[in-house]
Design a protein around this nucleic acid. Structure first.
Length: 675
RNA sequence: GCUGGCGUAGCUCAAUCGGUAGAGCACCUGCCUUGUAAGCAGGGGGUUAGGGGUUCGAGUCCCCUCGUCAGCUCCA
């Protein structure tokens, strides 16, 4: 372009920077650049300041901190090679190839103090453009073989830039796009968090590198707030609360399969009951289906070809004896032994799998298709909304299971909607309102939706994809819900909504879903008779509000910090006596409240009042109801509210019962969707 | 699955160089008769995850298995 000149942001925004030292970069026509590096400035270009507190500014700070960390690591551990070190949502990391093995916690402390020295020295960052050959030669000399690989991956038409900080012996250089802060002294608050293994380029066939995670903030105050939030998250960890509140347990005889203890089962079932009730008005019909199926079902659905890595298999004694007389089995055994001798693991497992006759279901859809096919269907009975809370089993790899959040045995608030393709829009609309209603009622304030569109590898015609994606998009626009596209992230059989639900700590979880599926109706040859008397193929919607109940439960525990709302709480009140004299009265109060359908227990033990209250509070019981001589004399109670965190004072037993009953009613759906 | 860490009483954790397995809480019993976050005393409770090895001797060192944690990968 003709009217370009070289300039720095520092010059262009001189007046603003003079008044605002937090400006550490700028967005020039949408691209983030340093304040100190000259760049070609187009006449009339838009230059917006980027401050250290902005998302973009934070990235600059963190990425610069990553460079400083790598510098410190290479000073302290000569021979360690650098790879990549980006800024991420919560901070940054840098992956190293360290021949002497992993970093220890002591190493981290040393690295951190070396970083502080580099920061205190105020070394300037400098950007430098270079040729591909020069860059190659430079990293060759330095022995940085990973950087050479990275250079090769940069497209030929893109410039190669280096960043240096420091000078002379203190200089450190990295292949880097930038941008960076002007000098290391701009880094105000840093912290190394953890160390972990990570594969070069994320591929498990590649060598394992040593990754150090850290974070950085524009001020010590912001860093402290972040560390405090980490602590809060730790305190709310559902695995910890699950133990403390007696919600669930695990056992090595069923790894990654939760055992819900009575209190946990109460909340879990309460969540199910809540949507089950709503199903009546929302037009769903609930069914109950088998756990174990002949593998022919999964051959029909496609799971046998694509999903057996995640499936549990089953068999029976009769089947095993039947194999004894099966000639084909004998020849399979020979093949198996040959494959074993040849060390062919894949073939051995294929042969064994071919003998297996039964499998645990990993999903409900195939059995719902069988139910659909059970008889001829008319257009008059569609849409058919089939709900199912049956347990599902999926084999998840050992490294991915996590408390209740990722398990091998779970249930979903699963339902499938079979409908004519032209009715799809109405069903999506209806479901979205239902979905937002439930999350609003459960106290979640913010949900982001993404529309995941066709992936490269897919089934179905382009017309079908157009229609399905169009329907999903149109409903969002009609309901005026903000959304983003998630390109190519749809399932291979159809597009879907992803719901990202934000919890009380501002963390986002992907919970429910809505997916459109043309594939299964084809595979199972589902049909309905239309008004024209001809056979038509329905489309199938997979939808869940909670998604996996186990996973939802884990999020809900952390969201509420274990303080479940009164209507879901396993124990709604504990009646505590001041002395043994009130034992009879306490039992009378419990009987009265229980008679109103409330879940109440008496604590008439020999503990002092303070200890009883402490125990009830640790158990997150919504009300601690104190009864002493004064209350017993007047048929009163003195409740203390968990949520208001205060003593409500003496009140007639009937008044308290009315208050508790009101709070024990499940919330109504919040009619208005929010996003 | 991979890399690394961890596994001691129901829970949270001690146990020096390889030398008699302990504490607090919880539980049980008794005393205390209690007024808004822990009253006092006593008692029971362990194949130190499981298996193998080294050693005069293993919670401790080595190997295998299982479980678990963090990260990576995965989540049709």
């Amino acid at each position: 372009m003709a009217d370009e000149k070289m300039a720095t942001v520092r010059d262009v925004l001189a007046a603003q920077i003079a008044n605002d030292p937090s400006i550490i970069g700028a967005k020039v026509d949408g691209r983030v650049v340093d304040v100190h590096t000259p760049f070609p400035l187009r006449e009339g270009a838009r230059v917006d300041p980027v401050r250290s507190s902005d998302q973009d500014g934070l990235r600059i700070i963190r990425h610069s901190t990553a460079h400083v960390m790598a510098d410190a690591v290479q000073r302290l551990f000569p021979g360690t090679k650098v790879t990549i070190g980006p800024a991420i949502a919560a901070g940054f990391y840098y992956d190293f190839d360290k021949p002497s093995g992993p970093f220890t916690d002591e190493d981290l402390a040393k690295i951190e103090s070396a970083m502080r020295e580099i920061i205190a020295a105020g070394r300037p960052f400098r950007r430098e453009l270079t040729s591909r050959d020069e860059a190659h030669a430079l990293f060759e000399r330095m022995g940085e073989s990973y950087k050479r690989e990275l250079i090769d991956a940069i497209p030929a038409n893109e410039a190669i830039s280096l960043y240096r900080h420091g000078s002379g012996d203190g200089e450190w250089v990295d292949l880097c796009e930038g941008p960076h802060v002007p000098s290391t002294s701009f880094l105000k608050a840093i912290k190394l968090v953890s160390v972990a293994g990570a594969y070069w380029r994320g591929d498990e066939r590649n060598p394992m590198l040593q990754r150090i995670y850290g974070t950085a903030f524009p001020s010590q105050k912001a860093l402290d707030a972040y560390l405090k939030q980490l602590e809060e998250a730790k305190a709310r960890d559902h695995r910890k609360l699950g133990k403390e509140l007696d919600l669930f347990m695990f056992h090595e005889y069923a790894p990654a399969m939760p055992f819900l203890l009575p209190k946990g089962a109460h909340v879990y079932n309460g969540l199910i009951e809540y949507v089950r009730d709503l199903y009546r008005t929302e037009g769903y019909e609930e069914v109950v289906t088998p756990q174990i199926f002949d593998k022919r079902l999964f051959e029909a659905s496609g799971h046998w070809a694509h999903y057996t890595d995640n499936m549990f298999f089953a068999t029976s004694q009769d089947r095993l004896e039947e194999l004894f007389t099966d000639e084909r089995f004998a020849s399979k055994l020979e093949k198996l032994l040959a494959a074993k001798k040849a060390g062919n693991v894949g073939e051995v497992s294929e042969i064994i799998k071919s003998v297996v006759d039964l499998a645990q279901k990993p999903m409900n859809c195939p059995s719902h298709c069988l139910m659909y096919k059970h008889r001829r269907r008319s257009y008059r009975e569609l849409p058919w909304r089939v709900a199912d809370f049956c347990r599902l089993h999926r084999y998840e790899r050992g490294g991915v299971v996590h408390g209740m959040a990722r398990v091998r045995s779970f249930a979903q608030d699963d339902a499938h909607i079979f409908c004519p393709p032209e009715k799809m829009g109405d069903e999506i609309d209806r479901f979205l309102k239902f979905f937002y209603g439930v999350y609003g009622a459960l106290g979640f304030k913010k949900i982001d939706i993404k529309l995941a569109t066709r992936p490269d590898e897919r089934i179905g015609t382009n017309e079908q994809w157009d229609m399905a994606e169009g329907a999903l998009e149109q409903v969002l626009r009609n309901q005026e819900l903000a959304f983003e596209f998630s390109p190519k992230e749809g399932a291979f059989y159809g597009p879907k909504y992803e719901f990202h639900v934000e919890d009380a700590l501002g963390r986002s979880w992907q919970l429910g879903t809505l997916q459109i599926d043309y594939g299964l109706p084809d595979r199972f040859e589902l049909e309905y008779t239309g008004a024209d008397g001809a056979a038509h193929r329905p489309v199938m919607l997979h939808r869940a509000i909670y998604g996996s109940l186990e996973r939802f439960f884990s999020v809900f525990i952390e969201h509420t910090a274990g303080a479940f709302p009164v209507w879901l709480a396993p124990e709604q009140a504990v009646v505590v006596t001041v002395s043994e004299r009130q034992t009879d009265y306490a039992h009378e109060v419990v009987a009265y409240l229980a008679g109103k359908g409330l879940r109440v227990r008496a604590d008439v033990g020999s503990d002092k009042l303070g200890a009883k209250i402490r125990n009830a509070r640790l158990g997150r019981v919504p009300y601690v109801v104190v009864v002493g001589d004064k209350e017993a004399a007047d048929r009163k109670v003195a409740p203390r509210s968990r949520d208001l965190d205060k003593d409500l004072g003496p009140m007639p037993l009937e008044d308290f019962a009315a208050r508790l009953s009101a709070e024990a009613t499940p919330p109504r759906l919040h009619a208005k969707a929010s996003s």
